[in-house]
Simulated assay, not measured.
Amino acid sequence: MGNYDALLVLSFGGPEGPDDVMPFLENVVRGRGVPRERLLEVAEHYQGFGGVSPINQQNRDLVEALRPVAGVPVYWGNRNWHPFGEDTVRRMKDDGVRRAAVFATSAFAGYSSCRQYYEDIARISVEGGPELVKMRHFGDHPGFVEAMADHTRQALARLGRDDARLVFTAHSIPVSMARSAGPEGGLYEAQLRRSAELVNEALGRAGRPWDLVWQSRSGPPQVPWLEPDVCDHLRKVDAPAVVLVPIGFVSDHMEVVYDLDTEARQVAEEVGLPMERAATPGTHPAFVRMVRSLMDEPEPVPCALTCCPAPVRPAPARHA
Rank of each mutant, 00 (worst) to 15 (best):
V63Q: 13
D5R: 05
A278D: 06
R289L: 00
W225Q: 03
A239G: 08
A190V: 03
F108W: 12
M92F: 13
D296R: 09
R265Q: 10
F144T: 10
R136A: 14
T152E: 07
A65L: 06
H137R: 13
D238E: 15
V29G: 10
H253L: 01
A65S: 11
V245M: 05
L8E: 06
H233K: 04
A317S: 13
V256S: 08
V243S: 04
F144Y: 15
G110K: 09
L260K: 11
Y258M: 00
P130C: 04
G128T: 09
L273I: 14
L8Q: 04
L7R: 02
I121M: 10
R318C: 03
P142V: 03
G14Q: 02
G143R: 07
S176I: 12
A202L: 01
T283P: 02
L166H: 06
F12K: 02
H233N: 02
V245D: 01
C308Y: 07
R30T: 12
D94A: 15
P298T: 07
S106H: 08
P224R: 12
R79E: 06
N3H: 11
H137V: 00
G143F: 08
D238K: 13
I55G: 00
A278K: 09
A310F: 11
E255Q: 11
A190K: 15
D211Y: 01
K93N: 08
R99P: 03
G48H: 11
A70C: 06
E197W: 06
G160W: 07
E44F: 04
M92K: 10
Q222D: 14
R99N: 06
A149V: 13
V52C: 00
T280L: 01
L39R: 14
S53N: 08
T280D: 08
P83G: 07
Y118H: 13
R60T: 14
E263Q: 10
D120A: 12
A147W: 08
L192W: 08
H45V: 06
S113V: 08
V21A: 03
L234I: 12
F249A: 05
G204Q: 01
K236W: 01
G248M: 02
E297K: 07
P18Q: 05
D261R: 10
F144A: 03
A101W: 03
V291I: 15
R265T: 14
E64D: 14
Y188I: 02
A286T: 04
P300W: 06
C303H: 15
E297L: 09
G77V: 00
L198S: 10
I173A: 09
F249D: 02
R98E: 13
P224W: 10
R277G: 01
A181K: 05
E299Y: 03
T88H: 05
P309Q: 03
T306L: 00
L187R: 15
L7H: 05
K134C: 00
A70F: 10
P228A: 11
V256L: 10
G13A: 05
E16M: 10
L39K: 15
D261S: 11
V237K: 00
Q222A: 12
P240G: 06
V89T: 12
E276C: 02
C114W: 14
V126Q: 12
C231D: 12
F84K: 09
R91I: 13
P224G: 15
N3F: 01
F144W: 09
Q57D: 13
V257T: 13
V9H: 01
R30A: 14
V288I: 09
A317R: 14
A315H: 12
E86K: 14
R235Y: 12
S195N: 08
R153M: 00
A101T: 03
Y75G: 07
D163Q: 05
